[in-house]
């Protein structure tokens, strides 16, 4: 993974001087990058509180909140009862009251109970109160498979959230973006679902500045330029796609890889600009195919860039079956080979 130098940074005017702030840059993994982002926002803004199962004493099962309770105390880093609906419902109220809750849902497969609160309240609080009440809340959750986990620990539920009006959905693919996006998510005036691709929690390291910076919500990034095909992905799948692009490059097929970073709202401009140049698009995702993010992106490209296309958009996806137990997961999630095949399909058209 190259240092993502293309990131546009927004000006940040901290309220308080942060003791951690310095101009240095450290190699961090994604766990450490989110941790640093959370810590700096908690130092900067005392309205930020972290709550969830095992986030305090234990520092989260993936250690993303490690050390935060020690630094900020039990009233700002709160171990809650085992109740996802309660965690998110209470976070909505905390946010309406004026705090900046960052709720952790321990695994993607434990997200379903929160839909009642997300759909019925978080996503419509602003509109139903005609702007009187808002929900500046972040819900963090791990995302995706290929970690040999038990059932319900390898899910990709982003489409349910992206489908819900009033909800923003973010997923970084590298430590730099992870820190910049968690800060943006916390500062955002509306509810943000923040997915963390667990397959690359620790396997991808990159230089992360210690100073404050943000990566804006709603901006995709071209992580590898190319001219024959646009390959669109998010989260851990970006790395699979970069490998596929490198593989095809040896055959002189130059693939442009777009890391969406934000899934709702989509950065339509970046997608259409790239596809208009290459004339071909492949979307790769871990999630099942039907009614997925890939379906939406494909529809948008066909609706708005049909005459630029030289082939129909191809989707390389998980299958329309429940995520299998881990012995078969490598057959379920698209690998480099399947992405390469998807690209060849558009080239052969």
């Amino acid at each position: 993974m190259k240092d993502p130098v293309l990131v546009k940074e927004s000006a940040v005017h901290p309220k308080k001087t942060s003791p951690v702030e310095s101009s240095s840059t450290k190699d961090l993994n994604l766990v450490q990058a989110v941790n640093l982002g959370l810590r700096q926002e908690m130092q900067r803004d005392d309205r930020v509180i972290v709550l969830g199962e095992d986030v305090g004493v234990n520092g989260g099962v993936f250690r993303v909140t490690e050390g935060l309770q020690k630094e900020f105390g039990e009233s700002r880093v709160v171990d809650t009862p085992l109740a996802e609906l309660g965690i998110v419902g209470a976070s909505i109220g905390l946010a309406m009251y004026g705090l900046r809750p960052v709720a952790e849902i321990q695994f993607d497969g434990f997200l379903p109970p929160i839909f009642d609160q997300i759909i019925s309240h978080a996503g419509r609080m602003r509109s139903r109160s005609l702007g009187r009440f808002t929900v500046p809340m972040v819900v963090r959750s791990p995302h995706g498979g290929l970690v040999h986990a038990p059932e319900h620990h390898s899910e990709s539920p982003e489409a349910y959230f992206a489908h819900t009006p009033g909800i923003k959905v973010v997923i970084p693919s590298n430590p730099y973006d992870a820190k910049g996006l968690i800060v943006s998510a916390i500062r955002d005036p509306d509810p943000v679902i923040f997915f963390e691709p667990k397959r690359i929690y620790r396997s991808v390291k990159a230089p992360v500045p210690q100073r404050e910076y943000t990566v804006p919500i709603g901006q995709a990034q071209v992580v590898r330029p190319g001219k024959e095909v646009t390959l669109i992905a998010w989260g851990a799948m970006v790395h699979t796609c970069l490998q596929a692009a490198a593989y095809l490059s040896e055959e002189h097929v130059e693939v442009e890889v777009v890391d969406l970073r934000t899934l709702a709202p989509l950065d339509l401009e970046t997608i259409l600009e790239s596809v208009s140049r290459t004339g071909r698009a492949v979307i790769a995702q871990e999630a099942p195919r039907t009614c997925s993010l890939g379906s939406e992106i494909s529809a948008l490209i066909h609706e708005r860039a049909l005459l630029k296309l030289q082939a129909p958009v191809v989707r390389v996806t998980g299958y329309d079956v429940p995520t299998p137990l881990y012995k078969l997961e490598k057959y379920y999630f698209p690998d480099v080979d399947r992405v390469v095949r998807g690209i060849r399909e558009t080239l052969k058209f």
């Binding site: 099962v61 993936f62 290929l146 970690v147 040999h148 986990a149 620990h153 667990k198 397959r199 690359i200 929690y201 620790r202 396997s203 851990a236 790395h239 699979t240 490998q243 596929a244 593989y247 195919r289 299958y319 329309d320 079956v321 490598k330 057959y331 690998d335 480099v336 080979d337 399947r338 390469v340 095949r341």
Partner: peptide
Amino acid sequence: EQRKALEEYLKEKDSRKDTVILDKEGRFP
């Protein structure tokens, strides 16, 4: 359709020498 596609894919993958290796897998948790 998806089952058929995976069956064909696996058959083809077996017969090819240039199969791209699988990604590095993560760790739980």
